[in-house]
Design a protein around this nucleic acid. Structure first.
Lengths: 118, 118
DNA sequence: AAAACCTTGACACGACCTCGGTAAGGTTGG
DNA sequence: CCAACCTTACCGAGGTCGTGTCAAGGTTTT
């Protein structure tokens, strides 16, 4: 049969059995079950589990964040609300502010320097 | 002048001053600054802050999750990696599994019932 | 020049998340 | 029938999140 039980799957994917159950509990990847309720992982799932590990490590992302990404894809209205809110961020204020800020920073450094020297 | 300082902004948006700084620290919304470094919130920002509150409450989302959504929008390769991974989830296994699972559940209930009655 | 702001930085804390471990019990294979 | 699996459910250590609060110091207003 073309499927591994949880401990074997853990072995070849680098996850712990505990984590495989946890991953399932957040809805990220659930395996099929044997008639007795044993989790069975096929090649498809095993590959996905490995990919998931790489993804998390490479981008320093957590499982809960993947869970949120999943939510964003499932809940259309959430996704559009979030998107709309983030969209507004695009309208950056004019650069006068940046200039003000820069000036402030310079002055601060001068002040600090003056304080240090006195 | 058409901008509020942090305590005033807190007042009208329902956030605490502490949280306004926190929100800024996670990169969700930063205000412009007065020459002395005081945060100044314009009507635009105030509205966005109110909207943010509603969004979080309505969908039961946290600030850190909004932060991740922002990350997804900023880091193109992250977004595509996450998307690709979630995409694979679409390929649902055939319904034989569902049938198996259902059968298992039924049997389990029978077992539990039997145990309870004995 | 004092009162009332603002700044950053730090400490603290409760609630929750992450994850290993263990217990109690069903399943499987030699 | 027993060893070696599997299941769910729970405990607990350590970390993160979301907040308040305080200290030390600069700014604005009166």
């Amino acid at each position: 049969m073309d499927a591994l039980t949880i401990n074997e799957a853990a072995e070849t994917t680098g996850w712990s059995p505990r984590m495989l159950r946890y991953i399932e509990s957040i809805g990220l990847l659930q395996s099929r079950r044997s008639p007795a309720g044993y989790r069975l992982y096929g090649p498809e799932e095993l590959q996905r589990l490995r990919t998931l590990r790489e993804l998390l490590a490479e981008f320093d992302v957590g499982l809960s964040e993947m869970g949120f990404a999943l939510r964003l894809r499932r809940e259309e209205d959430l996704a559009s609300a979030v998107d709309a809110w983030l969209e507004a961020e695009a309208e950056r204020p004019e650069d006068v502010d940046a200039a003000d800020w820069l000036r402030f920073e310079q002055e601060k450094h001068q002040r600090l320097l003056a304080a240090a020297l006195s």
